Amino acid sequence: MTSYRIGILKGDGIGPEIVDAAVSVLDAAAQRAGVLLNAVELPMGWNAIQTYNDPMPQYTKEELKKCQGWLLGPHDSAAYPPGHKEKRNPSGELRHYFDLYANIRPAKTMTGIKSVAGEADLVIFRENTEGFYSDRNMYAGAGEWHITPETAVSAGVFTKKAISRIAHAAFQSAMERRKKVTIVHKANVIKLGFGLFLQTCREVAEQYPEVEVDDYHIDAMTAHLVRRAKDFDVIVTENMFGDILSDLTGELVGSLGLAPSINSNDTQAMAQAAHGSAPDIAGKNIANPIGIMLSAVMLLKWLKTKHNDEQLKEAADLMEKALFETVESGVKTVDLGGTASTSKFAEAIVKRIQDLG
């Protein structure tokens, strides 16, 4: 039986609470499915600053090299001491260091959760290494300059290599879903950068003739998602647009606090909820852990695909089913109109996993 080494980075604010909740549910599902998980807790954020004077120390990165995947809690980098704020935040540093080029963010309505969109089941594939995010689109340094004290220039970077690999990831996902891909861009104005993005995605599409393809400008796409999110399946776009659209779709299907994601390269994946560290409610045991729990589900499914291990899929399905049924039964955290604490919500899911089957 294969053992999977999973890094646990709890992070700041509500991070320790929600990550602990997710790990308890992950352990229960893995045990029930017969999956061996070797969880390794590693320093990150304020905890790492106190010990290593670095929110993402080299020690943690070296240990993560030995992992098939990891759970990353939220960080409160805006509150870090001077000198640390100027660096990439922990999430950005890991995406850059490990070349986690695909940020995969699903948005799916759930029974028992009020949705603005009505019904939706889509996934956004966000290119994670370049575009207009200047903290990670250069080999060295940041892609921004002050020409004069009153003039700033920010560079967007688009390469055929990066576009091709995110497009392939999106189309491969579409083949397992409803076989439809929507390309989101702004090629009508940013003609070279987004022109290359659109052209390259269209070239990749030719290798997937079964998949229906369309494309929209980013401004039009936001309106279409609000009006008819249920019509979309897989969306592929660049870094900044993907960040914006995934926050929008998270809110449309219930709450950004529910939104999961993974960041992956070809051999590793990082599970990370889309929301922040919410320091105002840290330590109160009221935070909603659904985002990080569903991110852990995504990690198990990703590992199943990479390692062809059906027990990983069984664990993922158990975890997801138990979570959805718990919410549907009315057991929810306060933000969703329920009364359960973070830990009690996790305990209810664990019990359901143990009772399933």
Rank of each mutant, 00 (worst) to 15 (best):
Y216L: 10
Y216A: 08
Y216G: 09
Y216P: 08
Y216N: 12
Y216Q: 09
Y216H: 15
H217F: 13
H217A: 12
H217S: 12
H217L: 14
I218L: 15
I218S: 12
D219T: 10
D219A: 10
D219H: 10
D219W: 09
D219V: 07
D219K: 11
A220G: 07
A220D: 10
A220Q: 11
A220F: 11
A220S: 14
M221P: 13
M221G: 12
T222S: 13
T222P: 04
A223D: 06
A223E: 07
H224N: 07
H224G: 03
H224S: 07
L225E: 05
L225V: 11
L225W: 10
V226H: 09
V226C: 14
V226D: 06
V226P: 03
V226G: 04
V226M: 15
V226Y: 12
R227F: 08
R227C: 05
R228M: 09
R228A: 14
A229M: 08
A229T: 11
A229G: 10
K230Y: 13
K230S: 15
D231R: 14
D231Q: 15
F232P: 12
F232T: 05
F232G: 13
F232M: 10
F232L: 12
F232V: 11
D233I: 13
D233A: 14
V234G: 06
I235F: 08
I235K: 06
I235T: 04
V236M: 00
V236K: 01
V236Y: 00
T237W: 02
T237F: 05
T237G: 11
T237D: 03
T237A: 05
E238K: 04
E238N: 14
E238T: 14
E238L: 12
N239R: 02
N239G: 02
N239E: 00
N239S: 04
M240A: 07
M240W: 01
F241T: 01
G242T: 00
G242W: 00
G242I: 01
G242R: 00
G242H: 00
D243L: 06
D243K: 05
I244H: 05
I244P: 06
I244Q: 05
L245S: 02
L245G: 01
S246A: 04
S246G: 04
D247R: 08
D247Q: 10
D247E: 03
D247A: 09
L248V: 06
T249P: 05
T249E: 00
T249W: 01
T249I: 03
T249N: 02
G250C: 02
E251S: 14
E251L: 13
E251F: 10
E251Q: 15
E251H: 13
E251M: 14
L252Y: 03
L252Q: 03
L252R: 02
L252P: 06
L252K: 01
L252G: 05
V253N: 04
V253S: 02
V253R: 06
V253H: 00
V253E: 00
V253K: 07
G254V: 03
G254C: 06
G254K: 04
G254D: 04
G254M: 05
S255C: 08
S255I: 01
L256V: 15
L256T: 13
L256S: 13
L256K: 10
G257E: 04
G257R: 03
G257N: 10
G257L: 06
L258W: 08
L258S: 09
L258N: 14
L258C: 12
L258K: 11
L258Q: 12
A259N: 05
A259D: 03
A259P: 09
P260C: 07
P260T: 08
P260N: 06
P260V: 08
P260G: 07
S261H: 04
S261E: 02
S261G: 12
